[in-house]
């Protein structure tokens, strides 16, 4: 991130748009200034502020960076993201970042790795899953638990099927509002998957992303099942406008989610997430 003025975006071109589902799309973006592209690097779990001309900015986690282009998977839910989905290939946007803390992928080496996600929560962790898959030998078992409301909202199902075939890997999917139980799919919320998951509770790292309530419930259950609280990590979503800890909107107790987070080790936020509306 530039040091003199972290508020000023860089220009980037939309090189490609992949429509993942009716309301989820992935952007392939290239910085116009090649110097910026060369110096840009992110850690899994960090986010960028994406700027739509004349409208404003939105915080989106970075999916990947192939050295030339960066990728973002975005759900069109708000004023800005809905308009972003309509931008044609070749259009230009603003990008600044990366901001925030990262998933503990280095600390997780040699341990079992568990991902728990709900909704679009899978997007911020997919880059980490790919990283673990690419460095498979460095990690123990890989368990991926993903919950969606309906199976057709599930992103990248073929990729999940592919991961399922990897050694020492479990992919557990569930749909909370479907009536039909498809092969490889359970019915219910993510909690129904926890019993099936096989991993070393004493030697694992759990990374969670999704609604606050899902992460809090899962974290408490896992602690009860014997996973140390220090092994649990959550990615929080709050109102982010400046991304540098100045504007104050993302505060959760004494934390600025944009710069102290968005990834927190569970004990940092466990008590705060108990308080409704804090």
């Amino acid at each position: 991130m530039k040091t003199d003025n972290a508020y000023l975006p860089w220009e980037a071109e939309i090189v490609d748009t992949i429509q993942e589902t009716p309301d989820i799309f992935t952007w392939k973006l290239r910085f116009t200034d090649r110097e910026v592209a060369r110096n840009y690097s992110f850690k899994h779990g960090q986010f960028n502020m994406l700027y739509l001309y004349g409208v404003g900015e939105v915080a989106i986690s970075v999916m990947s960076n192939d050295g030339e282009c960066i990728y973002h998977t975005i759900r069109a839910v708000g004023r800005i993201t809905k308009a972003m989905m309509k931008l044609p290939i070749g259009a230009h946007i603003g990008v600044r970042g990366p901001f925030g803390s990262a998933w503990p992928l280095d600390e997780a080496r040699g341990k079992d790795v568990v991902f728990v996600t709900a909704g679009l929560g899978c997007a911020p962790v997919t880059s980490s899953i790919k990283y673990v898959v690419a460095n498979r030998a460095a990690y123990g078992r890989l368990v991926i638990m993903q919950s969606v409301r309906h199976r057709n909202e599930g992103l990248w199902e073929p990729q999940y099927d592919e991961w399922r075939t990897l050694p020492d890997t479990q992919v557990l999917l569930t749909a909370s509002r479907d009536k039909t139980r498809w092969p490889h799919w359970s019915l219910g919320r993510v909690s129904v998957l926890l019993d099936e998951a096989q991993y070393d509770k004493q030697n694992c790292v759990v990374m969670m992303c999704g609604p606050d309530a899902m992460m809090a419930d899962t974290a408490r259950t896992l602690v009860e099942l014997g996973v140390p609280a220090e092994s649990l990590f959550v990615s929080l979503e709050r109102n982010m406008q400046c991304a540098v800890g100045h504007c104050g909107h993302c505060q959760l107790g004494g934390k600025f989610v944009c710069k102290d987070g968005p990834i927190f080790v569970w004990p940092q936020v466990a008590e705060l997430m108990r308080v409704k509306g804090y």
Binding site: G56, H246, C247
Partner: peptide
């Protein structure tokens, strides 16, 4: 110190 960011096209 709280402030919001605004776009004025």
């Amino acid at each position: 110190f709280c402030h919001r960011e605004l776009e004025v096209p």
